[in-house]
Design a protein around this nucleic acid. Structure first.
Lengths: 193, 193
DNA sequence: TACGATATGGAGGCATCCTCCGTTTGGCAA
DNA sequence: TTGCCAAACGGAGGATGCCTCCATATCGTA
């Protein structure tokens, strides 16, 4: 139940001292590995250890677990927004939203335990989070303007849907087909009939 | 990420020694209070302390947090199943399902943090969990036989929906109206068009 | 080269989990 | 009633993880 922490997110170009920048990257690489192996709740001291860095260094750079998760995800989320934008011309508004949701769920299911914190993670404000949020909002607006999605659906509803499906995927182990099935159900629910 | 633990659930009539039975009830009462105050992640040692019982006693009776949560919820869930059955005659299959889901979400939102573990909790097998599961499955079957809910919807989908909505409720603080809104969306998605 | 701002690391305090085992107690059989 | 023992008790203690703090080290600039 971590509170959402809004603070300026430091990207690569920010004036970090060379050693700090190097350590930041080591921490991210280690976090990626450790989260993959043991889920989003893994020990941060393990991450620091694998990065060859003191725990204090990790905490100075990433004040909360959510910040670290979000940073680890930033590249992935950037790619998601990118690929969604890329297929925009070739796909209708409803299917665009469907594809976006399916991809979001797939990304969210990479680390066991990430789903439950997705809402918080999305608020941390990394470039990837921002890009993914904006893309989702854009797709939703587009579909609503095209008259295929109900006007009373909010972006929060989308995130909530993604969280739900990811959680479901985590619990039973019936992966890919179930993602499409559940996304289909929700898209139908949001559609104008 | 606790694994679901299937073990025979000890109800009141089971041959527990008198002192054990007394302590079990004290623990449940204390857990109810503590979880209400501090959410489903509260310290179990606090629960034991408030119950006036050693921590070992708590663990012997409830091997996991999920078991304790489920037991605490058992009465609530029993009531839920009961009231759902009671209104069965007065309500159509679709609205019956809707009412059930709304009530399930409301129950699940009582303790902050319960939603994320609802799936696990539902598998623990307390009388309440069983009753609620069976009632949900029955409503779903009824609605599908009436031809108003798609045949490819499973009971797991329902739980997933309840989890999603509860999580959404926990995050923003826009309670009652949002429950109805989201349940409506999902019901529409599951409906036959 | 020297100096101050920046960064480092890990010890340590605290919270929680969960197990283990010596002690106590309830309930039954004699 | 008494005595016995299976059942239950409690809490110390080992293990893990979180996060802070500060003496020390390092970078980059003047």
């Amino acid at each position: 139940m971590a509170r959402a922490v809004m603070r300026p997110f430091l990207t690569d170009e920010t004036s970090l001292r060379a050693d700090a920048q190097r350590n930041r990257e080591r921490i991210l690489a280690a976090a990626e590995e450790v989260f993959l192996e043991r889920g989003a709740g893994a020990s941060l001291e393990d991450v620091a250890k694998r990065a060859g860095v003191g725990i204090g260094t990790l905490y100075r750079r990433f004040a909360t677990r959510e910040e670290l998760l979000a940073a680890t995800y930033s590249a992935r989320f950037l790619a998601l927004a990118e690929s969604s934008r890329a297929r925009d011309a070739d796909i209708g508004p409803l299917d665009g939203l469907r594809a976006y949701l399916e991809e979001l769920v797939r990304h969210t299911s990479v680390y066991r335990g990430l789903a439950a914190t997705l809402g918080t993670v999305m608020q941390v404000g990394t470039p990837g989070c921002v890009a993914t949020s904006e893309e989702g909002a854009r797709l939703l607006r587009r579909a609503q303007e095209a008259g295929v999605i109900r006007p009373d659906i909010s972006f929060n509803d989308l995130i909530c849907v993604a969280v739900a499906i990811s959680l479901a995927i985590e619990q039973d182990s019936s992966p890919q087909t179930r993602i499409a099935h559940l996304v289909g159900v929700f898209i139908d629910g949001m559609a104008v009939h």
